[in-house]
């Protein structure tokens, strides 16, 4: 199989398979979660909870300042790599083109050199996150195979994308194919690992905000 074959497969059937597994998995997981149901709360709520629950969804984007002081690495590296992923995934011209071609939505891109810099920062912060996970006793206790798998699968697209952009290691076609395949791997494992948090955190924050708001507390 030549590099071009690999690239064509990754851009064609590979992508279709990955997106299908992703869509299948996400819908399945949402069914799994919602099907367990939730008993109606019969206690009289203090306030209408909808707005508060919505507010919690947004408020949890920001850190609690005391916790930030206690665990700065988690927050700084965590924010950095999430922000970096956002920039790299959504503000790089070829990626926008991909989104436009599948969803019909598009927006202006950032200069490639800037995205490149952000990619480096993302990679560095991901490494910091890993080191922190291994050295911090709490994180090490909580971590299992899945945590290291998802770390690697998150790192790979950024790394291969960076390497493809800079023509490192393999010819561009091969590297681009590996880049796309790494994204496809990410899509495939997404619904069945903690990567799913990117979707379910909205549900969780809503529940959290709702539970607290019934009692009159903005959580």
């Amino acid at each position: 199989m030549s590099a071009m074959d690999l690239l064509l497969w990754s851009r064609g059937p590979g992508l279709a398979i990955a997106v299908s597994i992703f869509a299948f998995g996400v819908v399945l997981r949402l069914f799994e979660i919602y099907s367990l149901g939730r008993k109606a709360d019969l206690a009289k709520p203090r306030v209408n909870t909808k707005a508060c629950a919505g507010a919690t969804v947004w408020r949890r984007m920001l850190p609690d300042m005391h916790i930030l002081r206690r665990s700065p690495i988690t927050y700084v590296a965590g924010y950095l790599f999430h922000f970096g992923l956002f920039v790299v995934v959504f503000l790089y011209a070829p990626h926008i083109k991909l989104i436009e071609s599948t969803l019909g939505l598009s927006w202006p891109a950032l200069p490639s050199a800037l995205v490149d810099l952000v990619a480096v920062l993302t990679l560095i912060s991901l490494v910091v996150v890993l080191v922190n996970r291994i050295t911090d006793p709490v994180k090490r206790l909580l971590s299992g195979f899945e945590d290291y798998l998802t770390w690697a699968v998150t790192l790979l697209p950024v790394l291969t994308g960076y390497m493809a952009y800079h023509h490192l290691m393999f010819p561009y076609q091969t590297m681009l194919a590996l880049h796309i395949l790494s994204v496809e791997l990410l899509l495939v494992i997404f619904p069945f690992t903690k990567l799913m948090h990117a979707i379910t955190l909205f549900i969780s924050r809503w529940y959290n905000g709702d539970i607290a708001a019934r009692k009159g507390v903005q959580s």
Partner: peptide, 20 residues
């Protein structure tokens, strides 16, 4: 129930709850 399923699905093992 759904909240528990959602909570477990969302946990990324960041360990910040320990600090609280």
């Amino acid at each position: 129930d759904s909240p528990i399923a959602s909570f477990f699905s969302s946990c990324v093992h960041c360990g910040l709850c320990a600090e609280a």
